[in-house]
Write a protein that binds this DNA or RNA. Structure first.
Length: 780
DNA sequence: GCCG
DNA sequence: CAGTACG
DNA sequence: CGGCCGTTACTG
């Protein structure tokens, strides 16, 4: 990936001439072998590395924490609404328009209109609100990918800790003496009240990494303890191996560490830093109570876990009373609650996509942004570390089971000491869209998952609604099990998980007992295998696949030779031709490269266009199945984007970027169009990639962003919730007062009134769904 | 398939 | 209209 | 027992 993220797009004209240069001759892809292994449909995509760990409890904290009273009220209202709606439904299935709701609607809209600038001031807004082309989503993504230029921070840190060699203890001591002035910058002091002993590894020399980390600890309100003292220290933070850590502590065994002092990895702090834009201080602090999750050594985990809330009290006790905590620091922390995003340009880059609390009410938000505008801090010496934190946050580094040591015998929290995660997981209510999920990649129930996934795929390939919903159901159980923290031990434990019913629990039991699931081989019949193969062709579903199977076709070659008289549509023909290309995912960088060819062309037609890449790319995935591009345009000058898609497609065709059309909108001049096609990089050997364009009216950009960002499961969950609340949500907006057919609830008799559509957060808020960044919207 |  | 696809 | 996203959009 090319680096800095600062490079500007090439000039449109250059691009155009490049595109039309004769050397870009599309080359034919070889046809895939009939039974090539790649024929298997893309099953269970690797989990997104960009996921973060937000346990479900965030929901609670969300609503009671920073979330202002206003939104709590909204919450309540939503609850009432659900109840009311349920009753109404039973009676006559007609939805009332409530007066109180109109008010909310009004509030919602006024928020988005009143202060359009505000979105821009908030660094995270770029991903939440639609912005003019310059500061779009892409930019924030790019800057995140790139590493922050180290120059700026070197300068400052060089000034302070000259070449002088210091031990970590000495450095810590020095910091303690001098830091009060230095860290008046506004960040969330989530380490306040915590006395931290940091072990970097080398006890003789405090390296750059150690020094930086120590500064970060102080910067976030933590108290750095130079020399370990179990009476003072509340947390040990270490990335060093067991031996060196023990040496630093002066102990000989891990068990010598007092039980009340959790020993956590640096990730513990990193992940908190990574959340500073997403959560408020209380939320982060609460989050950090889950020290067991970041345990540095497996065998120390229980000690940390059982400590639980005693820690909080104790920490407070130890510190605020006497120990250092300079007053100035505390004051500042208090006066600037939510701020770590305005630390100058560098910092902004790093944190740009972080969002504030979704539900923060208007007044509060203004407060914050005003406070922010006054500040003018220079370059943050710690920018590099923020980048690191950001990355950790997004890449889900700190997950359960990620221990440096191999001796993790009893990772499992004991049954009588259920981890916070367990209770969260057993949540009995709530919508799928409400809770950001962070599946732990090495899942303790991996074997079960694999079997169920296999079964799901088999059912998915079959014909009929019944099978369809069966597969759907498997998907839900799989997700539930994936986030279940413990190894499932029994039928009843499996049953206790929401989404796992009798049948699945029985299957799990069989897997536990025999290590196998006979049902899989039972279902894995020849027709399913072939059907699955055929459905890998774009434009072929269960129905067609089965038809072809019935006609005697068994391989892709059979289809090519039209065995049994089967006929392929033109789209299916293309799908067959590029079977492997279409079914493979592309690296994120390639999606970006293609997008960066496309965007300037569009902008060359009209510089006011909003052109953004959506889908899995916007969700931060490392690989993308396709490229989804959203196009719209503000209408404040009386113009629209009508017609640009037509021109754009023509240019892309001419440039050999778009090679095949799969679906062309009926009227290319409409403001709202969907185009699907294949494209490729204009370089030799490049493969065909799926590309989609979606154009929408400017007013519905929020709903469109929401829809086009996905993922699919998240969207369905949002729409389901909307429906249950009496709304209707689609890519055009959130509607209220929809009257549905009494006989068939799915049929709407009127389109309802528009409630929200201009910004994503508006829709989140009205539906009372905690705000989630694109990368947090992964449910599949 | 699961859930209400 | 059914089938397929999109997130 | 009915619902499980969308009066989604495009193809044929």
């Amino acid at each position: 990936m090319p680096g800095t993220g600062e490079e500007e797009f090439e000039q449109p004209s250059e691009i155009l001439s490049f595109l039309s240069s004769p050397e870009n001759i599309p080359q034919k892809q070889p046809l895939p072998e009939p039974s090539s292994p790649a024929c298997d449909p893309p099953t269970s995509p690797i989990e997104d590395p960009s996921l973060q760990n937000l346990p479900c409890s965030d929901l609670d904290v969300h609503t009671k924490g920073i979330t202002a009273s206003g939104s709590t009220q909204l919450s309540l209202e939503v609850k009432e609404r659900v109840a009311k709606h349920a009753v109404m439904k039973r009676r006559d299935k007609v939805l009332p328009l409530e007066a109180e709701h109109t008010e909310i609607t009004f509030l919602g809209r006024s928020q988005s209109n009143k202060d359009p600038d505000q979105a821009r001031k908030s660094p995270s807004a770029s991903s939440r609100a639609v912005l003019p082309p310059v500061s779009g989503v892409l930019k924030s993504k790019r800057s995140r990918l790139s590493s922050v230029p180290p120059k700026a921070q070197k300068k400052q840190s060089g000034k302070k800790e000259k070449p002088r060699l210091m031990t970590p203890a000495e450095y810590a001591q020095q910091l303690l003496e001098t830091h009060a002035e230095r860290y008046k910058s506004s960040v969330i002091k989530f380490l306040e009240g915590k006395n931290i002993f940091y072990v970097g590894g080398d006890m003789q020399y405090a390296g750059e990494r150690t020094r930086g980390r120590m500064e970060l600890i102080l910067k976030h309100g933590g108290l750095l303890i130079p020399n370990f003292d179990p009476k003072i220290v509340t947390h040990i933070v270490t990335d060093a191996p067991k031996i060196s850590t023990l040496r630093a502590l002066g102990y000989s065994r891990l068990s010598d560490i007092p039980d009340h002092i959790p020993t956590v990895k640096w990730n513990w702090i990193l992940s908190a830093i990574g959340r500073t834009g997403l959560l408020g201080k209380e939320d982060i602090v609460a989050k950090m109570e889950e020290v067991w999750y970041y345990a540095a050594f497996g065998e120390r985990m229980e000690a940390s876990a059982s400590r639980g809330r005693t820690l909080k009290l104790q920490a407070r006790h130890d510190t605020t009373q006497g120990l250092v905590t300079p007053g100035a620091l505390t004051d500042l922390a208090r006066s600037s609650p939510l701020l770590n995003r305005d630390l100058g340009p560098l910092k902004n880059q790093v944190n740009r996509s972080i969002s504030p609390q979704p539900c923060v009410d208007k007044g509060k938000q203004r407060e914050i942004s005003e406070e922010r505008t006054g500040k003018n801090l220079g370059i943050d010496p710690l920018a590099e570390f923020y980048a690191e934190a950001r990355a950790a946050h997004e890449n889900n580094w700190s997950h359960f089971g990620d221990f440096d040591e191999s001796d993790s015998g009893d990772i499992e929290p004991t049954a009588d000491e259920p981890s916070p995660r367990v209770s969260q997981n057993k949540q009995k209510r709530g919508w799928t869209c409400d809770t950001p999920q962070a599946p732990k990649s090495p899942c303790v129930n991996q074997d079960i998952l694999e079997k169920l996934q296999e079964l799901q795929e088999l059912h998915k390939a079959k014909v009929g609604d019944e099978e369809h919903w069966r597969a759907y159901s498997y998907n839900k159980s799989i997700r539930a099990i994936h986030i279940y923290p413990k190894r499932i031990q029994s039928y009843s434990e499996a049953r206790s998980i929401r989404g796992v019913g009798d049948k699945t629990a029985l299957k799990i039991k069989e897997i536990l007992q025999t290590g196998d699931l006979r049902r899989i081989n039972f279902e894995k019949t020849d027709d399913v295998k072939v059907t699955r193969l055929f459905q890998g062709i774009y434009g072929v579903g269960q129905s067609t696949a089965f038809k072809w199977y019935s006609a005697g076709c068994r391989t892709l070659e059979d289809l090519r030779s039209q065995k049994g008289g089967v006929r392929l549509s033109s789209v299916q023909m293309i799908g067959l031709q590029y079977y492997d290309d279409i079914n493979d995912r592309m690296p994120r960088s390639e999606a970006k490269a293609i997008f960066e060819l496309v965007k300037p062309i569009a902008l060359s037609f009209d510089s006011k266009l909003f052109v953004e890449i959506m889908g899995s790319f916007r969700r931060g995935k490392a690989d993308c199945g396709d490229i989804d591009i959203l196009i719209t345009r503000p209408t404040d000058d009386g113009q629209t984007h009508s017609g640009v898609l037509k021109r754009l497609l023509a240019a892309l065709h001419k440039g050999g970027i778009i090679t095949e059309d799969l679906a062309i909108p009926e009227n290319l001049a409409d403001l709202e169009c969907v185009y699907r096609g294949l494209c490729r990089l204009p370089s030799p050997g490049s493969r065909r990639r799926r590309i989609d364009f979606l154009t929408v009216p400017w007013e519905s950009r929020g709903a469109a962003l929401l829809y086009y960002t996905g993922d699919d499961i998240f969207n369905r969950a949002m729409r389901l919730k909307a429906n249950k609340l009496g709304y209707s949500l689609n890519q055009r907006g959130l509607f209220n007062g929809v009257v549905r057919d009494v006989k068939d609830r799915r049929v709407k008799l009127n389109q309802g009134t528009l409630v929200a559509s201009e910004t994503e957060e508006e829709i989140f808020r009205i539906l009372d769904v905690p705000w989630q960044e694109p990368h947090e919207r992964i449910r599949g």
